[in-house]
Design a protein around this nucleic acid. Sequence first.
DNA 1: TCTGGGGTCCTAGGACCC
DNA 2: TCTGGGGTCCTAGGACCC
Length: 464
Amino acid sequence: MRREASVLHLDLDAFFAAVEQRDKPSLRGRPVVVGGVGGRGVVATASYEARAYGARSAMSTAEARRRCPSGTAFLGGRFAAYRRTSDVVMGLLRELSPLVEPASLDEAYVDLAAGEGHDLSVAGVTELARRLKVRIAEATGGVTGSVGIGTSKLMAKIGSDLQKPDGLVVVPPGTELDVLHPLSVTRLGGVGPATAERLHQVGVKTVGDLAAKSLTDLVALAGRAHGAGLYALARAEDDRPVVPDRGVKSVSHEETFERDLTDLDVLGREIDSMAARVGRRLQASAHSGRTVTLKLRRYDFTTLTRSQTLPQPTDDPRTIATTARRLLAEAGASGGLRLLGVGVSGLSVYVQGDLFAEGPIDDDGPAPEDPSTAGDALPAENGLPAGEAPAGASAEQLPAERRWWPGQDVRHAELGAGWVWGRGLGRVTVRFEGPLTGPGPVRTLAADDPLLQPADPPDWRTPE
DNA sequence: TCTGGGGTCCTAGGACCC
DNA sequence: TCTGGGGTCCTAGGACCC
């Protein structure tokens, strides 16, 4: 453990929802839920207003709709917008230290001891954090974050969690156990539902309870590595370094279908389009990998994986697809599949010139029988231009209203910039406003109105 | 209209080699 | 012929995180 509180953890508050409220003035102060908006979607982030009604991350969107009042905005994600804002915040953190470890778009650790000229006293880091929060809010158009600072990653993360939202907690060196021991074990990273249940059964509810258990007991309960980890964390022993830029270990894409799929031809085309995406991402990052994994989730939610390791690393969509199709043929699809996934692991830096790569593969997206996934899935980082229909389903072939999804940025040649509120019955409802306007008017347009087009995320920064 | 998507790490068994 | 141990690779699954 360090002698000074020099590890900072930043957690942006309800980040996806906060970006939506910044860019959509009419949603400020109102419940907003970001996530999958299809029948099988789940909540990625609920704004604090939506949490007041019981909406939570990982809850099914259907359940969140039941709990929230009408007028709640249910939006698909705009990852390009989130990434842009995240990049701004990470840039501010890198001004504090070269050692910045992003844990996700909305979370990062900073090693302040590696930065220049910081006063690492409790008063010093408190003032540093206070100024950082102001700068973040200014640079992001009002997104807030919770900051924790302590002698380790563990204590920094615990600290950022103590006063959400918009919190600032410095855990003074020497007080770690006082802070830690009264907390529920579930506040520790690595204690999920399964471990929590097993700990409960042996009478462990708080971190203090955990600290009373022997190493032998914990290893028996949670396995060698995990048990030893819990034993150390309960004592605030944590020397994990802040590591900028951890290398990627695998690349994958998966998709839950609106309806279970059985037809092997249809599933094969799904595999082709997922393999094309995975291959493209591997090529873009100059990686190739040897192990191809197919993931299947059956109608009854049982999940299994099948993998094959190739003699040579590949980034070739054709090779990935052929391997995954073979694995699917062996596993079968009886009863129907609700999810397919294709991944590549065992990565190495790009091996130039795969002499045995086959020709180009068509990436024509979901089969015609199932156009419904376009726009319904949470548009996770997919490498597509912002606003374009996901998964390559060519927009022309879809019912016009399928081009639009709630939350999407659009521009109308006469009415200006706005975003999609809803769609259906051949029409699309758009609210015309942006981050720098007041709440704007709503118009319902024909879904095939040629004057209406997808647009890039709006800029929240006032022009100089 | 129950249960996303993109990851990481760990465990365990079998094959195979020394 | 028997006994055994360690190490690595591969496969499958599970827990967890955001």
